[in-house]
Design a protein around this nucleic acid. Structure first.
Length: 667
DNA sequence: AAGCGGTGTCATAGG
DNA sequence: TTCCTATGACACCGC
């Protein structure tokens, strides 16, 4: 079992995926899925995928908050982590990486990746765990890159009796490392590295022999605990037997099925370098659409209206059911007893049922996620809460909580290690999601997908659910930064933590709390902000209960109305302000007009006065027939059309014609 | 404690 | 008919 465990340490992830795909039995039948890529591989993949870790964020078809973007954030000091640190890694993500590697590269290249991953996986015992890889931040410096392939061997514990096989294993590792390096450097350098690695292989092996057995055993056992206990198994015993029987090269010698059949058998098979090659080449040759399988499968699961045929749909569902359920199993769960019913159950399920179960479990998962964020993160508590296996130790998506997992992994409870990472990751991802929605950015619904789903009664990949849909509910900007919080919790009292969580909830709006309560897989911003077409397609694509749909529509209506009310009030205020401005302008205009009128009146009065003066001046000069001054009270002056002026008696004003004649005579 | 302003929500009308 | 927007009215909250 040491041998097997060490193998598991070196490349156990590979084994797991093999079974996974075989169980799914479907389009993807490769053995390389479960390989845990080393940080270098992840980084290489990031580069291959087109850019830095930050850009890789967009490459992740599943995650908006974690996933591959995190994968590139390898912790530079990852290898210095506690050897007991479990390789927490989102297995699906690892799968995707490997799938990508196989699909994109040649067999040798993929082989190199695989080997490099195995080598780094063994190095993971010293901290370069997959968890560290996924979390790891920043690119490794050149020196670390160089070291990475070498160190693993130093971490390989003494097998104590498998020297020959171990030689092959180590050689495979180093060769794989060289292949990995090939992609970055020229061939000459690679060949030189090969020689060096081979030389160092012997040295390392000597070191390995000197290594205390417990050091390697601790790491490997801690990992095996999860897998062997059913926390990370993706198949039933029955499937395992079928798989093994179908592959004669997979020897079961020395493996106690009753003990740890799963990784053991597979590890055994993988222990052979020949088998290693064979499997991988087969995987490559059979890798029809691994990439597509990974990338497109989500469309078949969580979408209500998948474009793919049901034929391809059902297998994937089965695959998911196999992958997630056991994966969520907490340590100590009897994988055999629990998986078999699952398989039987799954076989009897139709795609629709599976979808329904998926729906139920998705939100159960989210529920668990909520619990993870709201409650204590002690995995034991989680297990007690749900009273069923539910620990995906591989769901280490958020690198930001590396410290947490490290801290907890320092504990001697290897059983808790896996769950610790799980919980931490849940918390982290949850917090991250909570933050993620603050900006209001929502991923394109078409990009939202769900990889895994669990059988009813089992909470599946909560983290994936959160990641894929970014269904988070934004916090107030004033809320404490959740990114930093998870780091602090281990050292704080639970009261403070619960208070923080309460504050977090309190900062959520009513609809956000409602959505959270109903596990709406979308953020309020998404629901409210997305266009009508996207909204409708989202509702049709995702399998939501009527209650959820109703709530989503209400949220959208209220959100729209809220915005409308805000706009309305803003508009009203603008109108009021404009009216006030109008009032001011009108008042000013009124004052101006008043002044103008006053001036006009003054001018008029002046004119009147002048006219009056002129009038009297004219009369003072007028004389009647007798030479006496004309009385202005009895006579008036009239202007004719031709400009002449007539003196008209006021009494006879009506008969102006006579007076006009008379006056004309006088002049 | 009352008043006031801001905000969310509902009901309703209209486009 | 459905959806969206605008808006009055009301309730709630904080100051």
């Amino acid at each position: 079992m040491k041998h097997l465990k060490r193998w598991w340490s070196a490349g156990g992830g590979l084994l797991h995926l093999t079974l996974l795909l075989s169980l799914a039995g479907l389009r993807v039948d490769l053995d390389l899925y479960l390989l845990l890529p080393p940080p270098t591989v992840l980084r290489d993949e990031l580069l291959l995928l087109g850019g830095p870790a930050s850009s890789a964020y967009a490459l992740n078809p599943f995650s908006a908050s974690g996933g591959w973007g995190r994968a590139g954030q390898l912790h530079p000091k990852g290898r210095e982590l506690d050897p007991a640190a479990p390789p927490f890694i989102p297995r699906t993500r690892v799968d995707a990486w490997l799938v990508h590697s196989v699909a994109a590269g040649s067999a040798d290249e993929a082989h190199g990746l695989l080997g490099a991953a195995a080598a780094a996986s063994s190095a993971g015992g010293a901290g370069a765990s997959v968890d560290g890889g996924s979390q790891a931040v920043g690119p490794l410096d050149a020196e670390e890159e160089e070291k990475a392939p070498v160190e693993p061997t130093a971490q390989v514990p003494d097998a104590g009796g498998c020297a020959s096989e171990e030689n092959e294993v180590l050689r495979e590792k180093h060769e794989a490392v060289d292949h990995s390096s090939q992609r970055e450097e020229n061939e000459e350098r690679v060949s030189a590295q090969k020689e060096n690695s081979l030389q160092q292989n012997n040295e390392d092996e000597n070191k390995v022999a000197e290594k205390p057995d417990w050091e390697g055993e601790k790491t490997t056992e801690s990992r095996n605990e999860r897998h062997l206990n059913g926390t990370d198994t993706s198949f039933s015993l029955e499937d395992l037997l079928q798989l093994l029987s179908s592959q004669p090269e997979n020897s079961l010698e020395g493996i106690s099925l009753g003990d740890t059949p799963l990784p053991g058998s597979i590890s055994d098979g993988m222990n052979s370098s020949a088998h290693y090659h064979v499997n991988f080449s087969q995987a490559i040759s059979q890798d029809v659409n691994l990439h597509e399988a990974i990338l497109l499968c989500p469309n078949n699961t969580f979408r209500r209206n998948p474009t793919r045929t049901s034929q391809s749909q059902e297998p994937f569902l089965q695959l998911n059911s196999h992958t997630t359920n056991p994966e969520q199993t907490l340590p100590g769960t009897n994988s055999t007893g629990f998986l078999s019913p699952v398989n039987n159950h799954m076989r009897n399920l139709t795609s629709q049922d599976l979808l329904y179960d998926l729906d139920v479990n998705i939100f159960d998962e989210i529920n668990l996620m909520s619990l993870a964020t709201e409650d204590d993160f002690d995995p034991i508590d989680v297990s007690q809460l749900f009273d069923e296996p539910d620990s995906d130790s591989g769901l280490s998506l958020d690198s930001s909580h590396n410290s947490t997992s490290v801290t907890k992994s320092n504990s001697s409870h290897c059983v808790c290690e896996g769950a610790t990472g799980y919980c931490t990751d849940h918390e982290s991802s949850s917090h991250h999601d909570l933050e993620g929605a603050v900006g209001g950015d929502y991923p394109e619904p078409s990009k939202l997908c769900h990889m895994d789903h669990s059988d009813s009664g089992f909470h599946g990949d909560l983290t994936f659910q959160h990641i894929f849909h970014n269904h988070t509910y934004h916090l107030q900007p004033s809320a404490p930064e959740s990114t930093s919080e998870p780091f602090s919790w281990p050292g704080r009292s639970q009261k403070i933590r619960s208070r923080y969580l309460e504050d977090t909830d309190r900062n959520l709006s009513r609809d956000e709390r409602r959505a959270k309560a109903l596990h709406i897989p979308f953020s309020v911003d998404e629901i409210v902000g997305m266009p009508v077409d996207s909204f409708n397609s989202m509702l049709s694509r995702y399998y939501l209960t009527d209650l959820q749909v109703s709530l989503i529509r209400d949220i959208r209506r209220r959100g729209k109305n809220k915005v409308a009310a805000q706009n309305c009030r803003k508009r009203k205020l603008d109108i009021i302000l404009n009216l006030e401005n109008d009032v001011c302008n009108l008042q000013a205009k009124k004052e101006t007009l008043k002044r103008e009128r006053t001036q006009c009146n003054k001018a008029i009065n002046i004119m009147k006065q002048k006219l009056h003066d002129l009038y009297h001046d004219v009369f003072s000069r007028l004389r009647d027939d007798e030479g006496r001054p004309v009385n202005p009270n009895h006579y008036a002056l009239q202007c004719t059309h031709d400009g002449s002026v007539l003196l008209v008696p006021k009494e006879l004003g009506a008969s102006g014609h006579k007076k006009e004649t008379q006056k004309g005579k006088r002049k």
